[in-house]
Design a protein around this nucleic acid. Structure first.
Length: 273
DNA sequence: TTGTGTTTTATTGCCTCC
DNA sequence: GGAGGCAATAAAACACAA
């Protein structure tokens, strides 16, 4: 906040204000007081707006030193700026007369004020953008975490499946899973909801129902679902493999859907006796 | 008291508009 | 071409820590 100090100019007999910079308390210490005294000697404070508006007086009384505007002057300028931040010539002249300043000073003040406003506006815009960005990052992080969690679930379940395959009981066979032709990104999540009877061997046939062209699960150490030909089925997607994911939880569909169908007696990939 | 950083006032040079 | 705006900058005034 801007603050000021009342000051009496003995040479002119007029009261005046010494403007202090922002954030300062009214009385600060010896140095400030000394400055007032020094200033009163150095600065020929304006006596009246009429005098100050006089070009000759102004030139004589303001040698090389800059002087700060009084709080009253600044207040009025601020009010005027709030009303309209551009200064048409007529208003400039009126303001100058009213404030006892040169029109040029008023114009300069408006120019500098516009520059300050622009800087502040940039800061505000930056803050807005930053908070927006931060919330997006936060959202992205939580989605990423969920994705990782689901991935590890997939890995865990795949390992369990492989373990069961190695022990050989029960015999898990696969029959007629349509290969996914298209790019995984273009294919809606396939829950691999092949009917149970299509996947398990019949009691009598031993593993006879395995499709001849299909993958031979029991002979292979690899998981059937990791076969590249069936990318939509329980495959583990690498981190770099974007584009087919689009931030959506593809694997959750693959896993959750069979559970949803569980009670309907359909669509589980495997059934243990 | 002094050095340093910040704010305010003012200047300069360039650009646009009428 | 003159008036006015803007960006960059200088310089004075001021705040403040050490």
């Amino acid at each position: 906040m801007d603050s000021c100090r009342l000051f009496f100019d003995p040479s002119s007999g007029h009261g005046n204000m010494l403007f202090l910079g922002n954030g300062d308390s009214l009385f600060r210490g010896p140095r400030s007081i000394m400055n007032i005294e020094e200033t009163s000697k150095k600065r020929p404070f304006f006596t009246s707006p009429e005098d100050m508006f006089d070009e000759e007086y102004y030139d004589e009384q303001m040698p090389e030193k800059k002087r700060r505007l009084t709080p009253e002057q600044v207040h009025l300028l601020e009010k005027s700026f709030e009303a309209e931040n551009k200064l048409e010539p007529e208003r400039k002249t009126q303001l100058a007369k009213k404030l006892g300043l040169q029109p040029r000073q008023v114009a300069v003040w408006f120019q500098n004020r516009r520059a300050r406003w622009k800087t502040k506006q940039l800061e505000r815009d930056y803050d807005l953008l930053k908070s927006s960005y931060d919330s997006l990052v936060s959202e992205y992080d939580s989605i990423l975490k969920e994705k990782e969690k689901l991935k590890s679930e997939v890995v865990s379940l795949t390992e369990k499946l492989q373990a069961k395959e190695v022990t050989g009981t029960p015999t898990l066979t696969v029959q007629k899973v349509e290969p996914l032709q298209a790019d995984a990104a273009d294919v809606p999540p396939v829950p691999c909801s092949v009917k149970v009877e299509d996947r398990l061997s019949s009691g009598s046939g031993a593993s006879a129902v395995v499709d001849e062209d299909g993958p031979q699960l029991l002979d292979s150490g690899d998981s059937y679902f990791q076969n590249a030909e069936y990318p939509g089925c329980l495959g583990v997607q690498s981190e770099e493999d974007d584009g087919s994911d689009d931030g959506q939880s593809y694997f959750s569909d693959a896993l959750v859907l069979p559970e949803h169908h569980h009670e309907e007696g359909e669509a589980l990939l495997w059934v243990w006796p």
